[in-house]
Each structure stands twice: as C-alpha cells, then as structure tokens.
Simulated assay, not measured.
Amino acid sequence: MSHLSRADVARLAALARIDMNDADLDRLSGQIDAIVDAVALVSEVANQDVPATSHPIPMSNVHRVDEVRPSLAQADALAAAPEAEDGRFRVPRILGEEA
C-alpha cells in the first residue's frame, strides 16, 4: 500500500500548475492514494497470460461502398443560412488571426 503525503500532492499540483488550498490537499491526498492502490491491484493481476484489450467484446469496422448519391443542392443548403458568402456559410471570426 502506497502512501502519498500531503507534500507529495502539493508537489504534483505545483508541477501541474494547479492552485490548491489546504482543504483540497488534505482531501486529494487520500483520494490519490486510493487510485494508486487500485492501479497497483490491476498491475498484480495483469500479466503476460492476459491479453491487453480496449473493449470487452470483439469489435470490427463496418464498411460501406463510397458512392455518389443525390443530395441537397448548394443553393438549398444556403437558403436557410443567416449569412452566406461565395457559396459558403459565413460565420463570425473566432480567432484573432488575419486570414
């Protein structure tokens, strides 16, 4: 069983540039300890006989043929837009950079 001290948690918070008050440090030192212990238990169980998995059931990709089908005309799509420009939707600039 590992034990992370309050000073360890404060150091981790400083490295992550997270400002924590005394109450947060006290609370998180116990919670982080529980997380580290849980990871240690999983590490004990997992060995070379247990294959690594990302999903509990097998998954496969579903592919379909990429074929051209009739779709909405450009003018119809832009008809409901608040603003359009040069055949595209016009939206407000969100970045302060010049185009």
Rank of each mutant, 00 (worst) to 15 (best):
D86A: 09
A80T: 05
L25S: 03
V9S: 15
L12P: 06
A77E: 03
V91A: 09
D22T: 14
V91H: 00
V62E: 15
A38G: 02
I94K: 14
A81Y: 08
R69Y: 00
A38H: 14
V42G: 01
Q48I: 00
R11N: 12
E98M: 10
N47D: 15
D26L: 03
E85C: 09
M1K: 06
S29N: 09
D33A: 07
P51Y: 06
D26M: 01
E44H: 02
V45G: 01
A14T: 14
D33Q: 02
R69C: 03
I35F: 12
R69D: 01
V91N: 00
L72W: 05
P82I: 04
E98G: 13
E44F: 01
E83D: 04
I35S: 07
N47F: 04
I18Q: 05
G30S: 01
I32G: 07
A99R: 13
P51F: 11
A79F: 04
M59A: 10
E98Q: 10
H63L: 07
V62I: 11
A84K: 14
V65F: 12
A79P: 10
I32V: 10
D76P: 00
V36H: 02
A16Q: 14
R90G: 04
E83W: 09
N47R: 01
P92C: 06
H55F: 11
R90F: 14
R93Q: 03
I94N: 13
A7T: 06
R27A: 13
H3R: 02
D66T: 09
N47M: 03
S29R: 07
A23D: 01
T53W: 00
V50C: 15
L4I: 08
D76K: 06
I94T: 13
R88M: 09
V91F: 08
L4W: 14
F89W: 06
A40Q: 14
V36T: 07
G87P: 06
A23C: 01
S60I: 05
S54K: 12
L78A: 11
L78Y: 14
E97V: 07
R64T: 03
